[in-house]
Design a protein around this nucleic acid. Structure first.
Lengths: 223, 223
DNA sequence: CCAGTCCAAATTGTATGCAATTTGCTCAGA
DNA sequence: TCTGAGCAAATTGCATACAATTTGGACTGG
């Protein structure tokens, strides 16, 4: 999310609603294609329609929902081609951040990245899927931050959120945890050694495999 | 702009206001730091505050304006560091699109890109600054489109818009037109020959020079 | 003259009401 | 049974009204 929006501790109702609705979409309470009724959401949250409308407009710009004039809003439902595009875009953004991170991470950031990575090795070995998943988000966020470029980092994160609804449970694929961790290893090594091109390549490889995993998962579910 | 928003021919008042205000920012009528008074804008456009507020929220998400809860909205005013970040981000996005374009442009798209480029050579030679500037936008847009990835293309375009207010008149720098054209030549050659890495490098080089030109320009104006 | 407090005007945030469009249902007619 | 016209209910878009917060300045005390 472009955080030129209110980040303070004085959020407006619209802002709180926007994050609440976004949460609902991300955790699956609201699924792709589902209709977002203004009056319903308003009553559900105990507010009037006005802040709901503003929140919806905000979410529409982030791509999480679709609004068509006079036809209402729905949770974004993408065609397989659009989902593919989102994954490709995310891979490119992650790779770009990794490349920049390899060039401009501070020594402290590099050490912290390595520490994170090593703690994830243990989680993967123990098969702690949920903890690994959380740590994974933090790992990637650390790389975004290491790029030292707010616009790119924000966009990378917004893409990650946006593909979220389409890749639930991906980590439950057999052996995905360990392979993910091996791929991280290549990324971390490249970043730590300042190998920009290598970091880019390793990250593209990693995220592309995640995409493959998603497609396999989608295929299973469709069957 | 993430065009999950209404693109139809049935735009809502809020949408029309959003583009109107955005135009004002892009063409300099509204300058960075300027306050955006809701009541004022409403009266000025002959509407109530409600659609104005929705438009502002939309623009805030695009990064063109800043909103702080209960403090109103202003045209985004960036520090030199933030402007630098925007230029770097734009360079990375353009380069990424160029790389993807080198890999996936169709023969027709390649021919059209070359045609565009050649017509720009004439404009540069004739010193037609304004026509060149328009053609330049079209040239870069063609490359975004050639990447065949809607999210990346949209983000690249939104970044281009976002830096717009900070780089007015850049092309009037001495000799900028001809050099820009030479850099385009390298980009086009790499794309046409399918040289992904080369296209990336050439585009980064090109856009970075634009940034340098901007900084030189800003330095002159500050003096 | 300056700092600080307090109040009024201005401005933003939210609620409510009404107009306009869409949606879905009923019901005639083939 | 199917199709389509037409009306009623539901839903969105916009305007207006009201509440809450911020802003600017007058005034007091030092």
């Amino acid at each position: 999310m472009q955080t030129r929006m209110s980040t303070d501790t004085n959020p407006t109702l619209s802002d709180k609603l926007a994050t609440a609705i976004a949460d609902g979409i991300l955790n699956g309470t609201l699924s792709p294609g589902e209709r977002l009724d203004e009056a319903g959401l308003a009553e559900q949250h105990g507010v009037s329609r006005t802040p709901v409308r503003e929140a919806l407009r905000q979410l529409a710009m982030s791509g999480l929902i679709d609004m068509r004039p006079r036809k209402g809003a729905i949770v974004s439902k993408a065609t397989p081609e659009e989902i593919e595009s989102l994954f490709v875009a995310m891979a490119e953004m992650e790779a770009t951040c990794a490349r920049l991170a390899a060039m401009s991470m501070t020594p402290i950031e590099r050490r912290r990245l390595q520490a994170r990575h090593e703690s994830m090795i243990a989680l993967a070995a123990a098969g702690e899927t949920e903890a690994y998943s959380d740590a994974n988000v933090a790992f990637h966020s650390a790389i975004y931050a290491g790029a030292h470029n707010a616009p790119l980092a924000e966009y990378a994160m917004s893409l990650r959120r946006r593909v979220g609804p389409f890749r639930r449970a991906q980590f439950r694929m057999d052996g995905r945890l360990l392979r993910s961790n091996q791929e991280h290893d290549a990324v971390v090594r490249a970043i730590l050694s300042g190998d920009a091109a290598g970091a880019h390549a390793a990250m593209i490889h990693h995220v592309s495999l995640v995409e493959d995993a998603f497609e396999a998962f989608a295929a299973i579910n469709a069957a």
